[in-house]
Design a binder for these strands. Structure first.
Lengths: 211, 211, 211, 211
DNA sequence: TATGAATGAGTGTTCATTCAT
DNA sequence: AATGAATGAACACTCATTCAT
């Protein structure tokens, strides 16, 4: 009922673009507060102090706005990748750094990571132009990286960039989900840190791909 | 409304252990019929013909009984692992076979696989004695396997069985989830089969671990 | 929030049959108060003072309970038919009386009539055992009546009871809907009463069917 | 968002009459596309590319514009009547043809028919000058027809044109609604076509009115 | 005269859990 | 020990109408 925590003074009428951004920003905030499972449209509109109908003027469904937030998350992840690659140019270490950076990302933005995984569920069908775009950019980045490493003789010639792209992504997402799920168990019972585990995995992965 | 299709004659009073087993069996049936998302306690008690209250006498929550069913699922997966190991004794191929068998399993029992992934969600807290037990057995199997391979000079000495156990499991689960999520996309757009992708991944993983 | 207007003292737990009846009765009351278009489940449960979930334990949808109320309405209409037939035995007048009695009925229970028409919409699919049963009984009554009249030489041999059943019903329902819609217009502008109009119609219909 | 598919070049400022006609035409298009239940003002203004507020400058409500579209529909039906009468001059067959032509009409323009029925709902109160006008013309046509048939000794002297007008209209509309509602049931269960049923009805009606 | 962003009270439906009997 | 009726907060989504600009 109040938007005092958001912008002052209260503006009743915003341009389409502004309102859309405001709603995405609000959704982003709610997502970080509540996580994916507890994310509801009600919370978003209550937070902003706008009517339910207003939301549905700008987004056709809950998944639609989540895809929008997810696109932002993917773009951030993409940045992590680009920065990692740059800081270790021209060796197998840059490949390792890229994969490890997705771990850093999942620590920095756990709800975003959760969202990325959530949005991959096959039953969802949202419009998702921005989401598909962001997804594609990450894939292109990754495939390009593998190709460069192959060209430089760093990664084996028989590793397909297309396949490597998908399995690096898929297995990294998976292992990070696993790390998150088993976090308490691992540290308390087996005294293994998440980082140790991931590094051991990436060691093997890198070792399996490099020349 | 009737349990005639389940056991006859109906026994009103079962021992605590029997009742628990009966409920777990019913939950198992419902899970296979409906999948995780459409699994409800109502369906379980309707199927068995017992009262809702009875259910909550034996299990403290929905997740509690799902953990029991999940324990059964993990035991089946364990069997897949054991059979795979036996059929390729004494070479790196047995390691490959084990990892690939989890893919076979996810094709044979998609609802079980879905459940295993579901139960790993960190926010859940269930009692899960049986679940932890089953989990542990798989870990022990896997750690034992890696150790044997190391002892036989098949896997590199510097691969930790403990860590390998976790990252093989985590990354395999993850990549299979990914395969499932992107199934349509991969086959239609990139013309990559799930099996091709998984095999390429396992190739790298094996190559990274073997001597 | 209060059921004081319904039964006292408040009983929290009723038998399935009692609760079902109570809900049907409440729906019946709301229907008469609000009409079909403004009939909502919220009003029913508020009126009774029970939870929304309680309603959905007993009826699978809004249309489901409306079908139940409609069955009651059809049974009442059936009674009107039977009484009319009995009071004019053995002449064409009994046929006339039956058709006219549906007019009486629509005056006595306008919301019921509205409901009967509403439930005939083809897009609806409710369980409707009771509704189908009641529908069938009216059809059987009508077909039986026409057959008797034919046997007694009162109605022409070439009138099919099956077809007559349907067209008498369909045209009567339609003309009564028309009467209701145009009520004000007819009386104010053309100075024709609904009764005059209906009687003229039935005159022609009877004249068309009789020997 | 664009009106390019409607008129080019776009005229921003139309006369009141032009704007009204433009809106009615748009509503007509949407009605035929979507049917009565899915007809919304949003769709109309989106299609035209004008603002919501503009709509409410020209029509006081949704029902108001629907009444205008309905007027057009009634005028078309009127044409069907006129054509039928001309093709069977001077016999009872022309009366039959008129009534049957309303069936043809309901097959040719099901959404219009649906609309005509919808607009007869008594709770509606729209301005409806055009609608009343169109209604009146049909009535005059029908009354004129009956009178002519009486003058020619084809229809009985004691049939009131005023009343016959209303009951023919009301019963035909009703029976056609009934046919539509029970379409599936009749054809699958009783193996009666809509046409058979309607013809049987018209047979009786004609037989009841003719000399 | 035209705009179009904003409204908000609905609307049907779900289901894990409780507790009086 | 077993019952099962009752709960009620949640939830996603709709659309005719208004009014400040």
């Amino acid at each position: 009922m109040t938007n005092s925590h958001f912008m002052s003074p209260t503006k009743k009428h915003l341009s389409v673009k502004e309102r859309r951004q405001q709603l995405i920003l609000a959704a982003d905030t709610i997502l970080k507060q509540e996580g994916v499972v507890d994310f509801t449209i009600d919370k978003v509109v209550d937070y902003l102090g706008v009517a339910k109908g207003t939301f549905y003027k700008y987004f056709k469904s809950k998944d639609d706005i989540l895809a929008e937030v997810c696109a932002k998350a993917l773009n951030q992840l993409h940045n992590y990748f680009k920065l990692s690659e740059r800081s270790h140019p021209g060796s197998i270490e840059s490949t390792r750094a890229i994969i490890l950076s997705s771990y850093e990302y999942s620590k920095d933005y756990p709800e975003y990571f959760e969202l990325i995984v959530h949005m991959e569920r096959p039953e969802l069908d949202y419009d998702a132009t921005a989401h598909k775009e962001a997804s594609m950019q990450i894939q292109n980045f990754f495939m390009g990286h593998i190709q460069k490493q192959k060209d430089n003789g760093i990664i084996r010639k028989d590793v397909s960039p297309l396949l490597a792209n998908y399995f690096c992504w898929g297995s990294s997402m998976g292992i990070m989900q696993f790390l998150d799920a088993k976090k308490a168990f691992l540290e308390e019972t087996v005294a293994v840190t998440q980082r140790e585990l991931l590094e051991a995995f990436v060691d093997v992965l890198i070792h399996g791909m490099k020349t």
